[in-house]
Amino acid sequence: MGAPHILLVDDQKEVTRVLRSGLESLEHEFRITDVPSGEEAFLEIQPGSVDLLVSDVRLPGISGLDLMRRVKEANPNLKVILVSGVTEEKIRQEVAQAGADAFFFKPVELPDFLDAVERTLGLVEAMLPSEMDAERSAVAKAKTEGASLAERIADLRNQVKADCVLLFSESGQVLMSAGDIPSFEKDLMPHLLAATGSSIRISKLLQASTPDNLLSFSGGQLNLYLKPIGDMYGLVIAVQAQNAAGIAPIENATNETVSVLARMLESLGVPVKSSTYPPPQSRELSTGELDSELVEAIEKENKQRMDKVEVDAFWAALSTQSSSVGFDSGALSYDQALQLGLAPADEEG
Rank of each mutant, 00 (worst) to 15 (best):
M1L: 11
T16V: 04
R20P: 02
G22F: 01
L26G: 07
I32K: 01
T33M: 05
E40I: 06
A41E: 00
F42L: 14
P47W: 08
G48E: 06
V50D: 02
D51A: 06
L52K: 01
L53A: 05
D56K: 00
V57G: 00
G61Q: 04
I62T: 03
S63C: 04
G64R: 00
D66T: 07
L67A: 03
L67G: 02
R69P: 07
V71M: 06
N77I: 13
N77S: 13
N77H: 12
K79M: 09
V80Q: 01
L82F: 02
T87G: 05
Q93E: 15
Q97L: 10
G99L: 04
A100T: 01
D101Y: 02
D101E: 06
L110E: 03
F113N: 02
L114S: 01
A116Q: 01
V117F: 01
T120C: 02
E125P: 06
M127R: 13
L128D: 13
S130N: 07
E131Y: 08
E131H: 09
M132H: 02
E135G: 08
R136W: 04
R136N: 06
A138L: 10
K141W: 12
E145P: 05
E145W: 07
A147N: 15
S148V: 11
E151I: 13
I153P: 01
A154I: 08
D155S: 13
R157Y: 07
C164D: 06
C164V: 05
V165I: 09
F168E: 02
S169I: 05
S169Q: 08
E170Q: 14
S171F: 12
V174N: 04
D180S: 11
S183M: 14
E185D: 12
E185G: 08
D187Q: 12
H191Q: 14
H191I: 15
T196C: 11
S199N: 09
S199F: 04
I200S: 00
I202A: 10
L205H: 13
L205K: 11
L206P: 07
L206H: 08
T210R: 07
P211Y: 03
N213D: 13
L215R: 08
S218T: 15
L222K: 06
N223Y: 05
L226Y: 02
D231Y: 01
M232W: 08
M232L: 15
G234T: 03
I237A: 03
A238H: 06
V239A: 02
Q240E: 14
G246F: 08
A248K: 12
T254Y: 03
N255H: 14
L261I: 09
V272N: 03
T276G: 11
Y277H: 10
Y277E: 08
P279W: 06
S286T: 09
T287F: 13
T287M: 15
A297V: 09
E299I: 15
E299S: 13
K303N: 11
R305Q: 15
R305A: 14
K308T: 10
V309E: 15
V309S: 11
D312Q: 09
S319W: 09
S319E: 14
D328N: 11
G330L: 15
G330H: 15
S333I: 04
S333K: 03
Q336V: 05
P344Y: 09
D346G: 11
E347M: 10
